[in-house]
Amino acid sequence: MPIVIVENLSKVYPVAVKEPGLKGTLRHLLHRTYRPVQAVQDVSFQIEPGEIVGFLGPNGAGKTTTLKMLTGLIHPSAGRVRVAGHVPFRRDVKFLHKITLVMGQKQQLLWDLPALDSLKINAAVYGIADKEFDWRVSELVEMLSLKEKLTQPVRKLSLGERMKAELLAALLHRPQVLFLDEPTLGLDVNAQVSVRDFLKEYNQRYDATVLLTSHYMADITALCQRVLLIHEGQLIYDGNLDGLIEQFAPYREVKVELAQPRTEAELRPFGELKAVDGTIVRFLVRRGTLTQTVARILAQLDVVDLTVTEPPVEEVIGQVFRAGVVA
């Protein structure tokens, strides 16, 4: 049975409209006009227990709004949401024990105190006994390699260490469903990798379900078997990453190294030119005509070397969002 069920979910916000200039400001102060903004529109999906799902979309696409409806922070305008068998917005105690929310740009740890103090508060709030607390903390500390960091004031930790400590605080109650909003935001590559590895291990060890948003494609490719693509509030893709490339990038890059340079006019008949750099030429070729084109290139040009690659996922997704392609 799916652990997350979302059916025809929508959210409309009233947003105040303000004209520029002093006149507009005065009018805004006295009489506000509101315009409804459709943040999320008729989104449906389901997530099975133990899945790691990536939630992708440009800024303002409705990712965070959806996460907030799933965690019960905001009330949906329309549609049905069930998480672990609960209606999130009621925020039942049982529901709150089963979920967690981590936000990369907000922190719950007390700034001036060691993280351990904040953890103790969380333990008391969630009713975790001392012995169990010690055990869980030592386990998570080891998984996150945070040794000896928990007794330093949070303000003295590096950004990466702080994020790990945040994760520890968010996972102390062993939630089944993890909602992660940009958990690697601003981290350096090493820290990103260790957060990623940790999430993967946590997922496997506890069979936890993870829904994460990230701007770093590497997070998504490393962790998620499945991605949800949201654009202007609408779900435009739901499936695995390979399928995404098939669907949105029906072309391959053919890189050819020639014996001697050719002019662009000579090269153009073989396919769409992506770049020409001396003897190195890159073509974009539709998948359907790939074999034919490669055969023609080999027959008619002096080829030293030839490789065919899939375009990188970042590029495909970027293209999807720029063009606003809707499947």
């Binding site: 965690t71 925020r91 709150l96 929310l101 709030v125």
Partner: peptide, 8 residues
């Protein structure tokens, strides 16, 4: 948000 998601 963090406060609202605590079971207290």
């Amino acid at each position: 948000d963090f406060v609202l998601l605590k079971p207290i």
